[in-house]
Amino acid sequence: MATQNTRTLARLMMAPSVVVLLIWMAVPLAMTLYYSFQNYNLLTPQNVSFAGFFNYQYFYTDPAFFQSIWNTLLLVLGVLAITVIGGTAIALLIDQPIFGQGIVRILVISPFFVMPPVAALIWKNMIMHPGYGVFADIAKFFGVQPIDWFAQYPLFSVIIIVAWQWLPFATLILLTALQSLDSEQREAAEMDGANFFNRFIYLTIPHLSRAVTVVILIQTIFLLGIYAEILVTTNGGPGYASTNLTFLIYRTARLGYDVGGGAAGGIIAVVLANIVAIFLMRAVGKNLDK
């Protein structure tokens, strides 16, 4: 198929985009790396000097550093758990032949089309607000004290909002995987005496494993960088309770006007993300080779 000729042509055609992508990635990375070794504070922009590893030490010894890493992990794992389990459940439901299937499916994927800050603001002001949110109304209806979500469970609230946004993605991928399950296999299992529960365990779950892998890999990449939802809801607080690594970098660089410190944090985040990526590819990536 791929003759020498087509391969050369393909390389030639791809070259421009590869070059652009490389510049796109390499230039910011190089600049970040450069600034992470500089004393560069926007309050005193004239005093730029070489800092050695001071910025790294500063970021690393920040009392919020380990908490932010912990929060990042909780955020990623929490959202993954909710979207994978919830996505499988919803996919199973909307895979059933029901009246108005098309509309139901569009409704289910619609959260994906709402921009993250907008979604977060709606959740903050219309759903989770302790005074006039939907949850508060429900609580009042049952005569319970409404929960002040963002004060009492700040990180969990962010997890719920982000999970709501990513649920359609997981559902969509898992639904297409469900639909590619060979119907004769299902029927064979039915004849072999497997009830619905057994068919789910022995047939559906193994069949979905590849799709779940894709969901986990793609979502992890995006979830490591969650930022907007935190900014418009809790602003990282109270204290550092809902600050993840990305948000800590923002706090350092923009609220502390410390460009050098922020850049060092950015490099640390890149390194950590790569560690997670390697770990993930080892752990679940082999599912893709089957």
Partner: peptide
């Protein structure tokens, strides 16, 4: 079955 319908995993 015609497609054998074996459980692939």
């Amino acid at each position: 079955f015609q497609s054998y319908a074996l459980y692939p995993h």
